[in-house]
Amino acid sequence: MTTTAPARFLLLGDSHAGPIGRAAQAAGVPFQGGPVGAGREFTDGFFTTHDTPAGRDIVFRSAEAQERYRRFLGELGVDALADLSIPLVSTFGFCAHFVALRENWDLYRDRSGAVPAVFLSSALFDAIVRAAVRDALAFYGHAVNLGLRVLAVMPPQRVPGQSDPAVFMAAQESIRRAVARLGVEVVDLRGRTTGPDGLQRPWLCGDDEIHGNLAFGRIILAELLDRGL
């Protein structure tokens, strides 16, 4: 999004960033950025760090993501991520439905076909999940080390049919804890957006199995504004 008013934040993320951007556009809240690819692209091996005369920066390995990223920085009038003077909002790494694909966890199922709760709360499970999203964690850590204010937005609580719901819930908790430990502000709105079953309320769901809609984006935007963005 290009805007003449000073942008309040830079939005970098996967498709879950879409409703946030649309909500900001609809509300006339100036920002820069948006989705730069699909969630599965931003877990492992998706960027490298780069030193420039203007400061430390990142380079996305995807040509499309890199082109969008450089365009966003250009619209902000900065040469590198280290020069950013506004908060960074991201959804990277929170594609828990991808981590929770049923076939990934068949080895750990008991005779009933379920992944045992004792395993889902184990250090081994936590380590596996963190390894699965290691570059997303590295991205957040790098941004924090640059001195940026970083906010990570948790995903819609929607579990597609090919994913295991119990693994989804446990995996996103592992990701949330790991991101928070890096000094990132985690935007966790589950208490306001889910029903008694812990899943996304229907009126906040998009037309597919995974995404939130504009109303969900508006709730996230309101939380960001409440945090001073």
Rank of each mutant, 00 (worst) to 15 (best):
I220A: 09
I86N: 00
A82Q: 15
R70G: 00
V133S: 01
D197E: 13
E75I: 01
Q172V: 10
P53Q: 06
L76P: 00
A82M: 12
F92T: 01
L199P: 05
E223M: 07
D79P: 11
V59H: 13
M169S: 15
G212T: 01
R177H: 14
A54V: 08
E209I: 05
L148G: 04
S174R: 10
F47M: 05
M1N: 14
F94S: 03
F98N: 14
R149M: 09
I20H: 00
D110F: 02
E223N: 08
L88Q: 02
R176N: 13
T43L: 15
A143F: 08
V167C: 10
G34I: 04
A63N: 09
R8S: 12
Y140D: 05
G161E: 12
A136P: 00
D106Q: 14
R218M: 04
G45P: 03
I175S: 06
L12S: 00
E67L: 08
A166P: 04
G74R: 09
V133K: 01
D197M: 11
V144A: 03
D14H: 02
D207C: 11
V187R: 12
L88M: 07
F125A: 06
R218Q: 12
T91E: 05
F60M: 04
V59L: 10
S122A: 06
H50D: 12
L214F: 05
F42N: 02
Q172E: 14
V36P: 05
L73G: 00
P30L: 04
Q200S: 11
G93C: 05
E223C: 13
R201N: 13
M154H: 07
R22N: 15
A5L: 11
R8F: 11
E41V: 10
S90L: 08
S112I: 04
P160C: 06
A24W: 09
A82S: 13
D226A: 15
E185C: 05
A24P: 03
S174I: 02
A24K: 08
Q32T: 12
R71Y: 03
V186Q: 03
R61M: 05
G228R: 02
A38Y: 08
R227K: 11
D110C: 04
T193P: 04
G34H: 02
G195S: 07
I58H: 02
R190Q: 15
I219C: 09
S174L: 00
L221T: 06
L221S: 01
P30G: 03
L221Y: 00
C205T: 06
T48G: 13
G13F: 01
S112L: 11
L10I: 08
R71L: 07
V89Y: 10
Q172D: 14
L225T: 07
N145F: 12
T49R: 13
A127H: 15
Q157N: 13
G217A: 03
G183R: 07
L101M: 14
S121G: 15
R201S: 09
W105Y: 04
E103S: 15
D207A: 13
S121T: 02
T43Y: 14
L214N: 03
R149S: 09
V89I: 10
V150Q: 09
F42P: 00
L73E: 01
A131V: 08
T49Y: 14
A100W: 08
R149D: 12
V29I: 05
G39M: 08
L137V: 07
N145D: 15
R70Y: 08
L10C: 01
P155L: 13
V133F: 09
R40L: 11
F9C: 06
A96F: 10
A63V: 11
A100N: 11
